[in-house]
């Protein structure tokens, strides 16, 4: 079978400006953040992002000016950042296009794309402005080949008469994931919650996975019930330990509260966020240099997950008390 191992640079070079992408993970968890930093560094722009509960993954891209449009449900880093600051700033200033759904309706849209269906019915959105208010109109959608012709369509079930909302399928150019284990052939294992990674991957034309560990294919096949995404659905694998930092990876390391708070503070305006990008995105020449910059071995040790728990129970989680 084909070896799909690539360097970070090779994988990032697959993604052109204007592409539609989805990003694996959930709020502050298991995002392919090193790959996102590389996209920004390479100057990729005008991305169309489909997400559910995003956090400082999408917010990093927004703050870097790499995003044209977001269709999603939620932008926050949990207790660290109750509203993603760049998201808030860019929407309030009219600098980004957006469309609001709920998490379950975005889940249904990805699932439809993954199953080869044009839409999915959901019971959510009824009675809500998610149904009534559209981020971009039917007219705008007509001239945008990437946008579904309608945000949502209300219908009565032909069998029961029940009212339902139909939401359009998503098919993305790229799905970017970070997982615990991958084989060189692209078989992916996810530990902990899978979030919506499987549906996002299967709803994409090209899946790029960064991983904590590259494991031989035959070894992953010894416990096939733990594997989540088949090799033929994956196009590139990048070995990138700590590739999700400052986000967490179950069983590997925790989120970095100090960095997430620094990100949040830096996002207050363009000048301050440019300084953040200069330091953490454009400054380091490689992922290894980035890891040195954030504190190297000592910091990584402080974030390491404790075996049996999947996170670090000793982690200082309140701002500034490291």
């Amino acid at each position: 079978m084909e070896d799909k191992l690539k360097t970070l640079g090779e994988a990032a070079s697959l993604i052109a400006s204007g592409s539609s992408i989805s990003i694996g993970g959930f709020t502050s968890q298991r995002h392919p953040t090193a790959l996102l930093r590389k996209l920004i560094k390479d100057g990729v722009r005008d991305l169309i992002i489909y997400c559910h509960s995003a956090g400082s993954d999408v917010d990093l891209l927004i703050g870097a000016g790499s995003v044209k449009r977001v269709e999603g449900a939620y932008q926050a880093d949990g207790v660290f950042t109750p509203i993603s600051p760049n998201w808030r700033r860019f929407v309030e200033a009219g600098r980004i296009h957006f469309e609001d759904y709920s998490n379950a309706s975005m889940m249904a849209r990805f699932a439809a794309g993954a199953m080869g269906l044009p839409f999915m019915p959901v019971k959510s959105m009824l009675g809500s402005d998610l149904m009534e208010r559209w981020g971009f109109s039917s007219e705008e959608r007509k001239v945008d080949p990437e946008a579904a012709p309608a945000k949502v369509h209300k219908m009565e079930c032909p069998f029961t008469g029940q009212q339902l909302a139909l939401v359009p399928a998503i098919k993305t150019d790229f799905c970017l994931l970070h997982v615990q284990k991958a084989s060189p052939q692209g078989l992916l294992r996810i530990e902990g919650q899978e979030f919506l990674d499987v549906q996002q991957a299967m709803a994409s034309r090209c899946v790029i996975a960064t991983c904590e560990e590259v494991v031989k294919d035959e070894e992953l096949r010894r416990n096939p019930e733990l594997n989540r995404i088949p090799h033929f659905a994956v196009d590139a694998v990048v070995h990138l330990p700590f590739g999700a930092h400052p986000h967490s990876v179950h069983n590997a390391y925790d989120y970095d509260p100090e960095h997430l708070m620094e990100f949040s503070r830096a996002s207050k305006d363009d000048a301050s966020f440019d300084r953040y990008l200069e330091r953490y995105v454009f400054g380091p020449d490689s992922h290894e240099e980035y890891l040195e910059l954030i504190g190297g071995e000592a910091r990584m040790r402080a974030l390491r997950a404790r075996s049996g728990l999947g996170y670090n129970p000793e982690l200082a989680r309140r701002g500034g008390d490291r």
Partner: peptide
Amino acid sequence: DYHHPDVRFPGSGGSADVATL
């Protein structure tokens, strides 16, 4: 205003789903 808000929040997340179902 929805398109040009005074304050923009995170969005529904699962809230609309939980409230409905």
